[in-house]
Design a protein around this nucleic acid. Structure first.
Length: 224
DNA sequence: GCGACAG
DNA sequence: ATCTTGTCGC
C-alpha cells in the first residue's frame, strides 16, 4: 500500500500545526467495516545511532495466521517528543507498508489514536494518510483518566479526557495490567476495544503488536 | 511554577 | 525505545 506525504515538519511547532489541521479529518463515529486482513505495526530503535526499523505484519482476522510482512530500515529525523510520536515513527512505517503484497483492511498501531493532547495520535495520523481504519493499543497511559477495569479478561473501563470518552483501559488477560485502546480513524471506541481483545487471545498485547515488535527488532539487527 | 509525559 | 537470562511464582 502506497502512502505519500510531502512537507514533513522539522520543528515541534510545525508538527503541532499539522496535527491541528489534519485532526479535522478524523472519523471515529463510523463503525468498523467488514475486514479480512489486520496489520500490526511497530518501530525498533538502535542504541548509539539514529537507525530505526519499521515493521508491519499482516494477519488473517479470523485465524490470526500471518499472511504477509515487510520492513524498512532508515535513519530517524524527528526527536521523541510526547505528543509528536507520529513524526518520528511514521516515515519508517509508511516505507514498510509500501513493501506489502497483501493489502490490509485495518491498521493496529503501537501508541494512541484520539487519546492524545490534540486528539491526533499516531493511529489517527496514519489512518488519515492511508484512508483506512486504524486504532492504537498502548502499554502505558498517556492522557485521560480511567477507573481500574475488572480483573477478568475482556473487562474495560472508559478512558476519559477533557470530558470525552477517547478510548478504554482494557484487560486482555486475567490479572495482567490493562492495555490502552483508542480509535484512530474509521472506527469507534467500541469496535476498537472489541478488535483489540480479539487480537489478544493468549497474551496481554495483541498478536499484531507482538509480531510487529519481534519483526522490527530482527530487521534492525539484520541491517547491522 | 511543578510534575507528567505514547515510543 | 534501549541495556537482558534465568528464575520465582501461580
Amino acid at each position: 500500500m502506497l502512502i505519500t506525504h510531502e512537507k514533513w515538519p522539522r520543528t515541534a511547532s510545525e508538527a503541532e500545526a499539522e496535527q491541528e489541521r489534519l485532526s479535522a479529518l478524523v472519523d471515529v463515529s463510523t463503525p468498523l467495516a467488514p475486514h479480512r486482513y489486520i496489520a500490526g505495526l511497530d518501530v525498533a530503535y538502535a542504541i548509539g545511532s539514529s537507525r530505526v526499523a519499521g515493521a508491519v505484519v499482516v494477519l488473517d482476522a479470523d485465524t490470526l495466521a500471518v499472511e504477509d510482512m515487510a520492513t524498512a530500515v532508515m535513519d530517524v529525523e524527528f526527536p521523541y517528543v510526547p505528543g509528536l510520536l507520529a513524526f518520528r515513527e511514521l516515515p519508517a512505517l509508511i516505507a514498510a507498508l509500501a513493501e506489502l503484497t497483501v493489502e490490509p483492511d485495518v491498521l493496529v498501531c503501537d501508541g494512541y489514536g484520539i487519546a492524545h493532547p490534540r486528539r491526533f495520535g499516531l493511529a489517527c495520523h496514519l489512518g488519515v494518510l492511508a484512508g483506512k481504519p486504524t486504532l492504537g493499543v498502548a502499554k502505558t497511559a498517556f492522557v485521560g483518566r480511567f477507573a481500574e477495569p475488572g480483573e477478568q479478561r475482556g473487562e474495560a473501563a472508559e478512558l476519559v479526557h477533557d470530558g470525552a470518552v477517547v478510548g478504554a483501559a482494557l484487560r486482555t488477560q486475567y490479572a495482567t495490567k490493562p492495555v490502552f485502546v483508542s480509535p484512530g480513524h474509521l472506527i469507534t471506541v467500541e469496535d476498537a476495544t472489541r478488535l483489540a481483545l480479539q487480537l489478544a487471545p493468549k497474551y496481554r498485547l495483541p498478536e499484531t503488536t507482538r509480531l510487529a515488535d519481534q519483526l522490527s527488532r530482527r530487521a534492525l539487527g539484520a541491517a547491522a
